[in-house]
Amino acid sequence: MEKIPMTVRGEQQLRQELDALMKRRPQITEAIAEARELGDLKENAEYHAAREEQGICEAQIRDIEYKLSVAQVIDVTKMTNHGKVIFGATVTLLDVNTDAEVTYCIVGDDEADIKKGLISVNSPIARGLIGKQEGDEVSIATPGGRKEFEIEKVEYV
């Protein structure tokens, strides 16, 4: 089974989500029992809604459990790659063409959220940055065209 990289923060978020879903299980079971008491199950909308909610909850639990089982949790705070861009690093970049500064944290596919500055390790920008160091200038082909960046700072948080 191939392991998938994940940050410590990503694992914690998945475990919290799993915990919340596990706490909902008994509530859903109770809702199904209450709906059963209302009578005819064929035309009982509350029963069907509760069963659907149970199916969705169970699917989400299985999905999270699978993700956690194949996760290779990487704690970058324990690594000593001073100034080098690696998985889990937070990188501050200067766009050479616009002088705009942007900060990204390189995370696993399931953790990626561009609005929060979390980019997948498999994204074009992350692939172009991995292995580079503070002060390096990089040219990266993105779907929006070629981007020129200077790596200002690399942090391991």
Score class of each variant (00 low, 15 high):
Ala50Gln: 00
Gln72Val: 02
Glu58Pro: 04
Thr103Met: 09
Met79Leu: 15
Cys57Tyr: 02
Lys67Ser: 07
Glu65Met: 11
Val102Tyr: 08
Val76Met: 08
Lys84Arg: 14
Arg62Gly: 06
Gln60Ile: 02
Glu101Met: 10
Val85Leu: 10
Leu94Met: 14
Ala59Tyr: 08
Val85Gly: 01
Cys57Lys: 06
Ala71Gly: 05
Asp95Trp: 09
Lys78Ala: 08
Ile106Gln: 00
Ala100Leu: 07
Ile64Trp: 01
Gly83Gln: 13
Asp95Pro: 03
His82Pro: 01
Val85Tyr: 07
Val96Thr: 08
Tyr104Met: 05
Val70Gly: 03
Val85Ser: 05
His82Lys: 12
Val73Trp: 05
Glu52Thr: 13
Ala89Gly: 07
Val73Met: 09
Asp95Ala: 10
Ala89Gln: 08
His82Leu: 14
Gln60Ala: 11
Glu65Ser: 03
Ile64Ala: 07
Glu53His: 04
Val91Ile: 09
Thr92Asp: 10
Ser69Phe: 07
Ile61Lys: 06
Gln60Pro: 00
Tyr104Thr: 01
Val76Ala: 10
Asp99Phe: 06
Asn81Arg: 11
Gly88Trp: 02
Ala71Gln: 09
Ile56Pro: 01
Ser69Ile: 13
Asp63Ser: 12
Ala89Thr: 09
Cys57Pro: 01
Ser69Ala: 12
Asn97Leu: 14
His82Val: 13
Gly83Met: 13
Gln54Glu: 15
Ile74Met: 10
Asp63Val: 02
Asp99Asn: 15
Asn81Tyr: 10
Tyr104Ser: 02
Val85Ala: 12
Thr77Gln: 12
Cys57Leu: 15
Glu58Thr: 05
Ser69Asp: 13
Cys57His: 07
Gly83Tyr: 04
Val102Pro: 00
Thr92Met: 10
Ile64Gln: 10
Val91Lys: 04
Ile106Asp: 00
Glu65Phe: 03
Asp99Thr: 07
Leu94Ile: 04
Thr77Glu: 14
Thr103Ala: 09
Thr90Leu: 08
Gln72Pro: 00
Val70His: 05
Val76Tyr: 03
Gly83Cys: 12
Ala50Pro: 00
Ile56Trp: 04
Cys57Met: 15
Gly83His: 08
Thr103Phe: 02
Ala50Met: 05
Ala50Gly: 03
Gln54Arg: 09
Cys105Gln: 14
Ile61Glu: 10
Leu93Gln: 06
Asp95Ile: 10
Ala59Val: 04
Lys67Glu: 14
His82Thr: 13
Gln72Cys: 02
Val73Glu: 11
Leu68Ser: 06
Lys84Gly: 01
Ile74Gln: 11
Val107Ser: 00
Glu101Tyr: 03
Cys105Ser: 12
Asp95Glu: 15
Leu94Phe: 04
Tyr66Phe: 15
Leu68Lys: 06
Val85Glu: 14
